[in-house]
């Protein structure tokens, strides 16, 4: 889309150079872990079962918390996109806040959130203990990703024109039927992309885990947390291998989300 009289100016060169430079840096950044490690070391460390056990813990906790986040996020996002909010900016700020504050502060705030009545007695009755446990890890992931899920789902629903629903309702469908039968299928791919993004975010969570749950071998050492713990103990090879696993999860999720979203141009 270049104009017919386009001359190549210095600004074209500089901006293109910046674009290529930034892209090259990020590519280098993603590849650095794999390049540093090399094949031989990777094979050596990948034979250690503890790494696979941590990957399993990361993926399973992230799967559960993604499920919870999307169960809240899909209706929440629909409500955010379609309901006439009374004080829209304030409410949107409140809902977005947990995804914008540093995850480490979410971990700090969780300390009070579960220790204050009525939550503390309820947890006691239910027999749930969160310190140094996998349940605590899942709580952290849910706390960090839920508002992210709501915002992504709201964007997915907002991409389906409200007119489509109005037409369905004029033709005799009730609101819930129009929402579930027309809008939800139309937003399906965008929601699928959102789910993958939320999953990647949950699998990357460790700051809140470190501050709220604490380290416990086999229960809370999800990959990103284990990278930090072992880094402090100077176990470089294992650390880089685990980081490579995290980078792979993030890259695959981003690739998947992009592929899914590409086939979802609505309206």
């Amino acid at each position: 889309m270049r104009p017919s009289n386009s001359r190549f100016t210095p600004f074209d060169g500089v901006s293109s150079l910046l674009l290529v430079g930034v892209a090259a840096f990020y590519l280098l950044f993603l590849a650095s872990t794999a390049v540093y490690l090399g094949w031989a070391d990777a094979a050596h460390h990948l034979a250690r079962p503890v790494l696979w056990q941590r990957l399993g813990l990361t993926l399973s906790t992230a799967l559960i918390s993604t499920g919870v986040a999307m169960i809240v996020g899909i209706p929440g996002g629909y409500a955010l996109a379609r309901l006439p909010l009374p004080i829209p900016r304030v409410l949107a700020t409140v809902i977005e806040l947990p995804m914008m504050v540093p995850p480490a502060t979410v971990g700090v705030f969780l300390i009070g959130a579960v220790a204050t009545p009525p939550v503390a007695p309820l947890l006691k009755i239910a027999g749930i203990s969160l310190g140094h446990s996998t349940a605590g890890v899942i709580l952290c992931q849910v706390a960090v990703t839920t508002s992210f899920a709501v915002c992504l789902c709201a964007a997915a629903f907002a991409s389906v024109p409200a007119r489509v629903e109005t037409v369905a309702r004029t033709l005799g469908a009730t609101w819930p039927r129009a929402a579930l039968g027309v809008t939800l299928p139309a937003a399906r791919n965008a929601l699928l992309g959102a789910t993958l993004t939320v999953f990647a975010r949950a699998a990357a969570e460790w700051e809140a885990v470190m501050l709220f749950v604490g380290a416990s071998r086999g229960a809370t050492d999800v990959l990103p947390f284990a990278v930090f713990l072992d880094w402090n103990e100077g176990m470089m090879g294992g650390v880089v291998t685990m980081s490579l696993m995290s980078v792979t999860v993030a890259t695959l999720a981003s690739l998947g989300a992009s592929l899914v979203r590409r086939s979802s141009r609505v309206g």
Binding site: A23, Y26, L27, F29, L30, T33, T197, A200, R201, A203, A204, E205, W206, E207, L223, P224, F225, V227, F228, W231, S243, S246, V247, A250, T251, A253, S254, L255, A257, S258, R261
Partner: peptide, 15 residues
């Protein structure tokens, strides 16, 4: 750019 930025933003801070 979609894929690259998405992957960078989905990385754990420790990575």
């Amino acid at each position: 750019a979609d894929i690259l930025l998405g992957a960078i933003l989905a990385l754990p801070a420790s990575s």
